[in-house]
Amino acid sequence: MKELIKSLVEAFGPSGSEDRVRDLIAAEVGKVAREVRTDALGNLIATVGSKGAGGRRVMLAAHMDEIGIVVSHIDAKGFVRFGGVGGVFRLALIGSRVRFADGRIGVIGSEQKRVEGDLPRLDQLFIDVGAKDRDSAPVKVGDVACFDRPFVDLGGRLVAKAMDDRIGCAVLVQVLKELGETPHEVHFVFTVQEEVGLRGAQTSAYGIDAELAIAVDVTTTGDTPEARTMAVSLGSGPAVKVKDRGMLSHPGVRRWLVETAEREGIPYQLEVLEAGTTDAAVMQTTRAGVPAGVLSIPTRYVHTPSEMVDYEDVLGAVRLLVAALRGPAEIG
């Protein structure tokens, strides 16, 4: 599964430009799924199984897009001003490298006047693409770029850009491959534009009209030096979400995941996230309401180019979802 993770995290895919990630995933799931389609906004939807006794129409979602930058202006000397695509983390920007769709690299520099000591604002930063002037700049206003950083395998722990949420995509692909018989009609949705407002999940959830929805996404941890209080740590198993800024999980879905983990002897943790949210927030309020929950992969340094996960947590998430989906969903 590490090869799959490596290829997914290194692919280019800021919100709105998920094509390459979609192609990679489509190639993986094409042989296994009953049907694979791309909808009007670009979500990739792979379907397996059909509703048997006690079965439901289930939507599983992981987002393909990653945070990035968009070119907003090129000045006379060829320096590129930019805006964020999704929630870019200013602390992680200076000295970072970005990669455009054509592979071209730029480095992020900062103005020096008026920012001494302080963290520069986004509009005080620029990208140097090595151009001499505006006309020779190889990019144009509206071009997007992702952060550039290779995948690293530290043994038990994996580091890369875009673990948020390619690790969720990898989990879904793996679940799809391992699932086999299921009483449910399961739609694996690889969503677009999560980082800019959960947009792909909103439309795909409406289209699928699910009876049960689970997002697989990353969550932050409280296990680093002087971290904010949070009872989630790396390596303690996937986290079953109770609450974040955008949703309160359906109690039945939460219980179903917890009971499955306990039955299967899979370590798990309960999660209350005080910032951020996931695709499940909009899946839950689709149409007349959908029972929704989240299975989170604990991740350090979220929204930096070096997001770290624990491989055992990832495998645990796959096992948990496979075990849950092979049986009926008793969500009360």
């Binding site: 909808d39 009007a40 947009r199 792909g200």
Partner: peptide, 21 residues
């Protein structure tokens, strides 16, 4: 091409209606 990231329009509401427009 308008500077990206500035403002919002009705398109924000329209494109996420139903199963996407």
């Amino acid at each position: 091409v308008k500077q990206p990231g500035i403002g919002g329009t009705d398109a924000g509401a329209i494109h996420v209606q139903r199963d996407g427009i």
